[in-house]
Amino acid sequence: MTLEPIEGEGTCVISLSNVQYSFTIPFEIIEENGKNFVELKEYQYSYDVRDNAKFTLKNLYNGNKELSDSMLSRMNQNWRYLTVNFGRIFMDAVADRVYTTFRNYMLATPLKDFNTC
């Protein structure tokens, strides 16, 4: 069997089922205009794709259906390995967005307002 380089140009869709994120976020309480706010400093995260991942790559191997189907079948059978070893490329953007949204909310909401929830 000859190994062909993986190539092609087209779209890629990765569907993940039941992704769990865990964040560790150090913080400080700051005072501004007589009100206390939570200021998040940084974050570390981990993730776990718990149920499944499905990879769809259009025009893999430049349309060679036999090679494409074979590679996609291997990728989808080995979804756990791929998401563990290469998933951070995709998960970093989601983690950044979650952290930024949470950080902005915490800086905009004084601590006393949390007591009324």
Rank of each mutant, 00 (worst) to 15 (best):
M1N: 10
T2V: 12
L3V: 15
L3A: 15
E4A: 14
E4H: 15
P5Y: 07
P5T: 08
P5D: 15
I6V: 15
I6Y: 11
E7T: 10
G8I: 10
G10D: 05
T11M: 07
C12Q: 10
V13W: 01
I14R: 04
I14F: 09
S15Q: 08
S15T: 12
S17V: 10
S17G: 08
N18H: 12
V19S: 03
V19I: 13
V19E: 04
S22L: 05
T24S: 13
T24Q: 13
T24W: 05
I25W: 02
P26C: 09
F27R: 03
E28F: 01
I29E: 13
I29N: 09
I30T: 15
K35P: 00
N36G: 00
F37D: 07
V38W: 00
E39H: 12
L40T: 07
K41S: 09
E42V: 01
E42K: 14
E42W: 06
Y43S: 02
Y43W: 06
Q44W: 05
Q44H: 08
Y45M: 07
Y45D: 08
D48H: 04
R50L: 13
R50D: 06
D51C: 05
N52S: 12
A53F: 03
K54L: 10
F55E: 02
F55N: 02
K58Q: 13
L60A: 10
N62T: 06
N62P: 04
N62V: 04
G63D: 07
N64G: 05
E66W: 08
D69L: 11
S70H: 11
S70Y: 11
M71H: 13
M71W: 07
R74A: 14
M75G: 01
M75Q: 11
W79Q: 02
R80V: 12
R80I: 09
L82S: 02
T83N: 05
V84E: 14
V84Q: 13
R88Q: 14
R88F: 06
I89G: 03
F90M: 06
M91E: 14
D92Q: 14
A93G: 11
D96F: 01
D96V: 00
R97D: 13
V98Q: 08
Y99E: 01
T101S: 07
T101R: 06
N104F: 01
N104Y: 03
M106K: 06
M106P: 00
A108Y: 01
A108N: 14
K112V: 11
F114P: 00
T116K: 11
T116R: 07
